[in-house]
Design a protein around this nucleic acid. Structure first.
Lengths: 210, 210, 210, 210
DNA sequence: CATGAATGAGGGTTCATTCAT
DNA sequence: AATGAATGAACCCTCATTCAT
């Protein structure tokens, strides 16, 4: 009898597919797109090389897909952190927190996004650009709103959003690479949030910190 | 400029060497480390492939050397912008200005540093780390000084320096990639400086901008 | 038709087998032996790839078998056209007619035989050789007979048979590839028959054509 | 000093290139396009695999080039045999002779042309078609001329030319594969010429042979 | 010094074939 | 019987590197 294609097998297949994708993220973030070979990936996933091409059309497509999925995930997570609040201070704080949390939980993924194999594949440059743009826009929207309501002084919100994006990336990268002490993350979140909010002019008096 | 002919004489001799290094920066920043081939470089420099290996031990070494020299150049330029002033506001403003100026003058070089072939070569990761570290320290020193003098509120200056570094990178990258209007650069410098200074709490009242 | 289900019963059982063989002829003649993949075949037959290996030991064996069966079919058809007649002129004419008819009815099959994946598989060369040989012999027998009876002048009948075989192949190939006009086939049959019969010296006076 | 690129080296390079092409013809005609690997070719030429790609862009291009060159050579040789004469009988005889001579002198090449890797590469099918067409046209021209002058009876010269082409191919193929006796070639030339000329109706009385 | 022909390890990808289900 | 996921040898091709000239 033709074997049960529905139940167990399907799940198993999905599991293997997922395992391979995780292995791929790992390898890509460790070596970058070009240096990572398909052979590396299948070894990490402990499957034969043919299996890779059974699940994915080719290396580039997988990488692009991984990058996009990963980027979407991060973008939405941060977006959620931001959009659930009303006050700018909370929006920033929660956005930063979401970002840091994900970075700590999935350092590999964040690494892939921030320092992945840029320049390697033309189509990736575009994807990377989109990702940066999405992150910037996440920050810019609340800024525009706050500006409208006179909560922050007149300023180029686009540029401010760029600065926020860059600041977050760098702080998080440092947090991941130099894991100082135990609970450094909460401190980083607070420091970063304050820096950003002050930078935006959203805080009353400059002395109002810790 | 980086990678000039060391010092004074041996002009002729180093003509080819220089040509190759300039070509290499160009090619590396366009294609990334892996995608750039030695053939690409020698063709751009209009020399034979054998000549490459007369002047440089191999592709990796050249890239590392180029990266280092380029990084040093940028670091020193920004350092100079910062260290020549006394007041924190001026230090930040001039540091940012130096960075932006170089980015506009040598976009290729800055691209190479910011999104170069990371992860490609193990030894490069270390180099990149050093570069980021150097940039962060440039900003941290004046912060520590200002903190000592009570010019800015209590804060983690290391983290603030990270944020500044990241903010600069992102704003500059955007400036290079989306060249909006004519004299966007001065505006970017001002915006960025204000954001940073406010973020540090170095400005009196939050309404004191433009 | 070739590759029918051997004999009588096991209809259902062989439905897939037959489908695959027909698909295989199609695919092989379109792409040639090497370029045709087992996947192509099973897709065309709408069965799973495992099914292929249940019915056939491997790709090569199937191809060989197909080639042989196909060749036998063509050989016997032409043979029948020839052997049913008494006069040389009719033997030639009917042989040619049979050949052309089959070519028009099953162009795929004839293509496979004439320009199939030669050289691809060592064992195929032998098979192809046999097929050519069989075709040549079909023609040679009536020639020998005619020679015995003094109906054609002294000549090397083997060589003449070779020439006939080649002439038929080429004319038919052209008929299939450049389908000029409607009823070109009858004209081709007549032209070819006359050419051959004259070539053999079987016709009285050279002016006795159309 | 930059080494002498003009004299000795150039010749040596050309020699190697030629050697590789000859090796390629050999391998291609033995195994067919698909089954022949680049490794086969470089092994036959006793060079490294990289050398292949230094001289030729890729396998397909080389094969196409080889096929074309080879086809042109054969076509022109036969053409020359035909066009140098005035009488149809001599044109046919010399054309056939040229063809046979080349086949005996370069059996590999002729094999490649007649049973080369057809169906393998789309672009090759076109090339093969061109070659067949050229051969057919070589024969058709003198036929048209002879028809105009009333030297042969009314007939479809195109079809006759196709028959001639096919007849030649088959006889020659058999001559190469079954080398019977010593000087079989002259006999084959004579047999074939007579068959063709009679087939065309160019000979007075059918009994006028050997 | 300079050249570029020559090398071959290694990368991405295909595809005939197997076997647990 | 039938399926299709899994395998891995082998293919084509690239490119860093060497070395005779």
């Amino acid at each position: 009898m033709p074997y049960r294609t529905s139940d167990k097998m399907r799940r198993k297949k999905d599991a293997k597919r997922t395992a391979m994708m995780q292995a791929a993220v790992q390898v890509f973030s460790e070596k970058g797109y070009h240096a990572a070979t398909v052979r590396d990936i299948v070894q990490a996933a402990d499957v034969a090389i043919g299996t890779f091409y059974f699940y994915f059309p080719d290396k580039e497509t997988l990488f692009l897909y991984l990058y996009e999925e990963t980027a979407d995930f991060l973008v939405q997570a941060v977006q959620q952190g931001v959009s659930g609040r009303a006050k700018l201070t909370e929006q920033i704080a929660h956005g930063v927190q979401s970002y840091v949390n994900i970075a700590l939980y999935e350092p590999t993924v964040v690494f892939l996004l921030l320092v992945g194999g840029v320049g390697a594949v033309p189509s990736l440059s575009a994807k990377r650009e989109q990702f940066r743009e999405a992150m910037i826009r996440i920050w810019q929207r609340p800024l525009d709103h706050a500006l409208d309501q006179g909560l922050i002084p007149t300023q180029n919100t686009r540029r401010a959003a760029e600065a926020i994006t860059g600041a977050c990336d760098e702080v998080i990268l440092n947090l991941l690479q130099n894991p100082r002490g135990e609970n450094e993350a909460p401190a980083a979140i607070k420091d970063l949030s304050f820096f950003i909010l002050r930078g935006l002019g959203a805080l009353g008096s400059p002395a109002a910190d810790k």
